[in-house]
């Protein structure tokens, strides 16, 4: 009884997202963006700006690969005129190429096809979604952010989303980590045991591209070589709102600009 009263005293702390915008989600610096209209740094300078090689500079301008960016902000410190923090946690995308910003226009058509294919596959996920998390060599912080989704602030149960212990009951595989080679076999077994249709989410920069462990002898440089990834969430680690954005993408429950990923 005392615990029950304690719980009541706090009032409602749960976000209204996605039905309503959330101020914390909109203000959170979840990614790096390229400021438009500046002459691009030469390729050598671009390489020196990023310890994980996420910045490339060519004739058509400068691009940041969020799938490699670990948010160390070195580029913003060294070239504040060219790079800036991008506020907003709607960072999940449905194709690896879409993590590279600014996005090339020719990608839009193929993205549209991917989006339609994913929507057809996940039409049944709209009301209820069961999630199986697999750690494939994370640093441990991703697990904290995923576990946070069930705390009263995010409370994904209100959206009909649940974590499940068995891959047999899962609709979504939420995979974290740089693709450690020791996890290749367990991940494959889990993937094969998961019911179809399945959506695979690569959660975090490590899962998207290996992060600082991309070139290690012990990793695959991300989880893409181990499973067919459908949704990519950058961030080191991604914030719970970014993860929620990915789950909502998987269920096709977003509208407007947030859905156009």
């Amino acid at each position: 009884m005392p615990w029950f009263l304690r719980g009541l005293r706090e009032g409602v702390v749960t976000t209204r997202y996605p039905a309503r915008p959330d101020a914390y989600a909109d203000g959170f610096p979840a990614a790096v963006a390229v400021r438009p209209g500046l002459p691009p740094p030469d390729p050598a300078e671009a390489a020196a700006l990023c310890p994980t090689g996420a910045i490339a500079s060519g004739a058509d301008g400068t691009r940041v690969d969020r799938g490699r960016c670990v948010m160390c902000r070195r580029c913003i410190r060294l070239r504040p005129d060219a790079f800036a923090e991008a506020a907003g946690t709607a960072t999940a995308v449905i194709a690896r190429t879409a993590l590279v910003v600014p996005r090339a226009e020719e990608d839009e058509a193929s993205l549209e096809r991917t989006r339609a294919e994913l929507a057809a596959r996940t039409a049944r996920f709209r009301r209820s979604l069961h999630i199986r998390h697999v750690d494939a060599g994370s640093d441990g912080s991703e697990e904290w952010e995923i576990a946070a989704l069930t705390n009263p602030v995010y409370d994904i149960h209100r959206l009909g989303m649940f974590f499940t212990a068995s891959p047999r009951h899962a609709d979504v595989l939420l995979v974290t980590g740089a693709g450690a080679r020791g996890m290749a076999a367990p991940l494959r077994r889990t993937y094969e045991a998961t019911a179809r249709p399945v959506v695979v989410i690569a959660a975090g920069t490590d899962a998207c591209g290996g992060g600082v462990f991309a070139d290690s002898y012990a990793t695959h440089g991300g989880v893409a070589p181990l499973a067919d990834v459908d949704i990519w969430v950058p961030g080191s680690p991604p914030s719970p709102f970014s993860l929620l954005h990915a789950l909502l993408l998987a269920t096709g429950r977003l509208s407007g600009s947030e859905a156009a990923r």
Binding site: G137, S138, G177, A178, A180, R181, M183, F213, S216, Y217
Partner: peptide, 8 residues
């Protein structure tokens, strides 16, 4: 399983 080759 989680060995990432951190030292290297």
């Amino acid at each position: 399983h989680k060995h990432r080759g951190v030292s290297k």
